[in-house]
Write a protein that binds this DNA or RNA. Structure first.
Length: 402
DNA sequence: CGAGATTCATGTGAAGTATACCTTTAGGCTTAA
DNA sequence: AAGCCTAAAGGTATACTTCACATGAATCTCGTA
């Protein structure tokens, strides 16, 4: 038996997981603790849809990981189950945050059409044409109602404008025998205030707020899932408490807590530990943060990577001299870098926008400051933790062929 | 000395351009009657 | 004549550029005490 066989064979017996899926973020549990009230309320609002009646549009707030998406999905799943025979309902879920998938009006519509079974080219069509196509494909279906769930709408509106929401809410008047119910989900509590009053009133006919979980509730949730997910006796004393404490600090983000538990389990498994210990959670916390950032960096387009590399290098240098880094410095360094790699340089205008995007992504922190006589620029600070800087640089160097 | 003007380096908005892709339309070719 | 293919014409979204104006506090200027 080869050495590898041994490793492969031992996987089954060594695994700490009974059913890992339970801890993955796309898993929909049977019951959702501490959200009974909200679920009932949603169900109450959406119930008439079973009879094919148009219900109010619904708007839901709450910070990440408070069970918004889960609750909605739970209710709509039940609705679908009840409505499965008579085909009056259809539910579509769309996350508006996904870059390159749903970050423009055109792409959101294209994505919706795709989900409904049609197809549209990535570019070339006038937007109103795409609207027509959307209506067409909607009319062609059997279902009377479409429940459209737009997750993280605030992101979409920030990138586009609120007119497209208005267009969506107005589509109902163009549909002869179909109706659309829009459910908007947002993490940003102030989002509604920034909307045009017209859009606001039609989108948020009903509003709901999901409060964050407190540490006790988080523990409850984690316990339940841990029991389903891990084999008996695998979870050490205090692990659950620690996970929920971490997550409670992140304003009650349950998803974060579950991720933490799952990754901790994976780490423990990899380290051949028979139990998940508290130290695994600390490691998991680092790993999650790390993977998130590394993934963003890796998937960013080349020009963005060049800018980011410039930022990284300059901040590294500035650390020694205790100077700050500004837009101009970065642009100069970036230009040199482009020459070195033989890539076309973008204009400073564009690079400025790219820097702003990194700010949005949370990789850097860029604040506009005025240095009086010496101009006005963004002061740029890195948000990426020290301990993964080298790996970031590694990815960039490799990706750029430096 | 201090109020107001000046200045710098870039922020920021709007409009224009390049590219890649789409539909429509007209012409040319083939085919079947 | 009808059907099919192709190429040109006309159109769009997106990423980027160009142009022009906006910003805001350190510094300068100059009248005044």
């Amino acid at each position: 038996m080869s050495g590898l066989d041994k490793i492969f064979d031992s996987v089954g017996s060594r695994s700490l997981f009974k059913n890992k899926r339970v801890l993955q973020s796309n898993y929909t549990p049977e019951s959702i603790p501490h959200r009974d009230k909200q679920i009932e309320q949603i169900a109450g609002i959406l119930a008439p849809s079973l009879l094919g009646e148009k219900t109010s549009n619904l708007f839901i707030y709450g910070v990440t990981g408070t069970g918004k998406t889960l609750s909605i999905q739970h209710v709509t799943n039940e609705l679908m189950r009840r409505a499965s025979e008579n085909k009056i309902l259809r539910v579509e879920y769309l996350n508006c945050k996904l870059k390159k998938v749903a970050d423009t009006e055109y792409r959101i519509l294209a994505e919706l059409i795709k989900k409904l079974g049609g197809s549209v080219p990535a570019t070339g069509l006038p937007t109103d044409h795409v609207y027509m196509k959307f209506l067409e494909i909607l009319e062609s279906g059997d279902e009377k109602l479409l429940i459209l769930i737009l997750d993280e709408v605030d992101q979409a509106v920030k990138k586009i404008n609120d007119e497209f929401l208005y267009n969506l809410t107005r589509l109902n008047s163009e549909l002869s025998n179909k109706q659309i119910i829009i459910i908007g989900i947002s993490n940003d509590l102030r989002f509604l205030d920034s909307l045009d009053p017209r859009v606001r009133s039609s989108l948020s006919e009903e509003e709901m707020v999901f409060p964050p979980y407190n540490a006790v509730q988080l523990q409850d949730i984690l316990k339940k899932r841990a029991n389903e997910s891990f084999k008996l006796g695998v979870v050490s004393e205090g692990v659950i408490a620690k996970c929920s404490a971490y997550a409670a600090r992140e304003h009650g983000d349950a998803r974060r807590a579950l991720d933490l538990l799952r990754v901790a389990g994976e780490l423990a498994e990899r380290a051949s530990s028979p139990k998940i210990k508290i130290e695994h959670i600390d490691n998991a916390n680092d790993k999650i943060e790390r993977d998130k950032i590394l993934d963003i960096i890796e998937t960013e387009p080349k020009q963005f990577q060049l800018v980011l590399y410039s930022i990284l290098e300059l901040i590294e240098r500035a650390k020694k001299t205790k100077n700050s880094v500004f837009t101009g410095d970065i642009y100069n360094y970036y230009c040199d870098l482009c020459k070195q790699v033989k890539v076309e340089t973008l204009t400073q205008r564009r690079v400025g926008d790219i820097i702003a995007e990194f700010d949005m992504l949370g990789l850097i922190n860029a604040t506009v400051i005025s240095k009086g006589r010496y101009g006005r620029m963004r002061e740029i600070k890195l948000v990426i933790p020290e301990n993964i800087l080298d790996r970031c640089r590694g990815i960039l160097v490799e990706g750029l062929g430096l």
